[in-house]
Amino acid sequence: MPARIIGRLLLSFVLLWASSVLIFGGIEVLPGDFATTYLGQSATPQAIANIRLELGLDRPVVTRYLGWLAGIAQGDFGRSWASGQPIAEQLGHRLGNSLLLAAAAAVIAVPLAVGLGIVAVIFRDRLIDRLINILSLAAVSLPEFFIAYLLILVLVVQHPVAAFPATIYGGMSLFEKLHTIALPVATLVLVCIAHMMRMTRAALLNVLSTPYMETATLKGLSRLRAIFVHATPNALAPIINVVALNLAYLVVGVVVVEVVFVYPGMGQYMVDAVTVRDLPVVQACGLVFAAIYIALNMIADVLSILVNPRLRHPR
């Protein structure tokens, strides 16, 4: 089993490296010249040549890629074209803000979704199950910004209980921060809970239909003991997968929510950079998002390996 886990870790590093090539090289091979893009169509050839020199675009691609990678390894993501500021500094505290948002949403959504999934299975085909089902089908179909603006309209404009926009800054206490981000967190929870719950329910039902669950019934065990003792260990791997998948989704989901709530996180940073074509910032943010995503998927796989008795006790 350790070999399997080490293999999975190595695969993640390979993926991460390959995605860095994709992020850096992909932009290179796409048509369109940076300098022209940067200065606009009306720029003089001399201005373009100057800016290419200034940005270092005259060096070969491979050299620039290696320089970029070496910089990142030392925590240096280069400088923004738009502001001239080092990217790492901005990225650092914006990443912190984004993670705060995602973590707060996860802490609420994961137990709630898994719990509701279990409730739906226990009351299978009864009113409560159907209700949860219909609501979740609706929730997976709603765009994030629709939920967000609906919440703002109701909870800020009509009944002013929550804060908008969700501006947080260094001097705030944790409680103040949490109050400020209540609405974006609520939006994220609503967006990912339905999907997570449906998948949890499906994973559990799958386990419940196995012959060994009938064995548990025919041993005279109570339904609750059968579900919690016999079904849960087997449902764990799929549920862990569901959770990790949705956490990865959360990390991406922050992009839209941050824009709606004018929240100073990494998502908004990236969207602003894309709008003005500030490529070094786009690349840096893209790489960080990809790294988080790859890491979460890896954690899910490693946990699945750890909870699988066949892999824990090979023949």
Partner: peptide
């Protein structure tokens, strides 16, 4: 395909759209 899927869709789209017309 695995490689393309290892970067979240929205993020990927943002990166590509930042460079394309």
């Amino acid at each position: 395909n695995d490689l393309l899927m290892s970067i979240p869709t929205l993020i990927f789209a943002l990166i590509v759209l930042s460079a394309l017309p």
